[in-house]
């Protein structure tokens, strides 16, 4: 069998050399068709890939993109005053103590409002992730910073614990670690003597997950919290902000918070 059948490479080599002159024009045509096809596929798929990328986080090696503005919409019409699922979820997610004193960590809290006519509201308040954050302006070392995608964070390595950012925050959203920390979560390092606040669950967002409070609120059936990219007109948060009246807390300060409230 081996004698009757020439080695494959040799036969292909002969065939190729024999057909070379005739097939040049055909190959060029095929290549062109393939190129056009690839280009068409690229044009068709690229926006989708891009939108997917913007809406669903990013690889860890890439920096945060200024094309994204992460934000949260709090629908107070859906928020129940007897529910603190968001607070419990935040504490659990970040390893924060559940008992609240004047010196404990409170990254999100429920503020009960009463107006002069007896109307009541229950309002979750956390870092508002301002576009122009006073805490970032005043921080002497630059430990308070805003990511390109709008999330305001504290760099635990350069925070010296001066608490000027706490003086500057109009929302009382930052707390100071007053005691040695126990029960830390590996993805949420904390440290005595540093200031901290809501990170918008950046460790989850960067891995294509929603913040713990939003997840817990949905699980509780209230669905008062909506998280997403304010810059993406197709996102639920952007559509709802565009369709319904929403407001910023202390809008008079014009800090352009990433957290918006409906029904305030």
């Amino acid at each position: 069998m081996s004698a009757a059948t020439p080695p494959r490479a040799a036969s292909e080599g002969v065939a190729a050399s024999g057909a070379a002159g005739r097939s040049d024009g055909v190959d060029r045509g095929r290549r062109q068709i393939l190129a056009w096809g690839a280009a068409l596929a690229g044009v068709t798929l690229a926006p989708g890939v891009m939108l997917y990328d913007l809406a669903h986080g990013r690889p860890p090696s890439e920096p945060a993109s200024p094309k994204v503005r992460w934000g949260m919409l709090v629908d107070l019409n859906q928020c129940a005053s007897d529910c603190d699922a968001c607070v419990v979820a935040c504490d659990t997610e970040h390893g924060l103590p559940r008992t609240k004193t004047a010196t404990s960590a409170q990254w999100i809290r429920k503020v009960e409002l009463k107006d002069a006519r007896g109307g009541a509201r229950s309002v979750p308040v956390m870092c508002q992730h301002c576009a122009d954050p006073p805490c970032v302006d005043v921080c002497p070392t630059g430990a308070s910073f805003k990511r390109a995608d709008g999330i305001v964070l504290v760099d635990r390595h350069t925070c010296i614990g001066c608490r000027y950012c706490m003086m500057a925050c109009p929302y009382g959203a930052r707390t100071f670690v007053h005691e040695p920390v126990t029960g830390q979560r590996p993805e949420v390092p904390r440290g005595k003597g540093c200031v901290e606040s809501c990170t918008l669950c950046v460790h989850r967002v960067d891995h294509d997950r929603i913040p713990a409070c939003v997840e817990a609120c949905a699980a509780s059936g209230h669905k008062a919290l909506v998280f997403g990219n304010l810059n993406d007109p197709e996102s639920e948060i952007a559509r709802r902000v565009a369709s319904y009246a929403t407001s910023a807390v202390r809008a008079d300060l014009r800090l352009d918070p990433g957290v918006r409230y409906a029904g305030l």
């Binding site: 005043v138 070392t141 630059g142 010296i160």
Partner: peptide, 20 residues
């Protein structure tokens, strides 16, 4: 300071928008 041992950080990292 919460972290007085990081005074070197204060001397080497400046945010010039900060009055501090």
């Amino acid at each position: 300071l919460g972290r007085p041992e990081r005074i070197v950080v204060a001397a080497t990292h400046y945010n010039f928008r900060s009055v501090f």
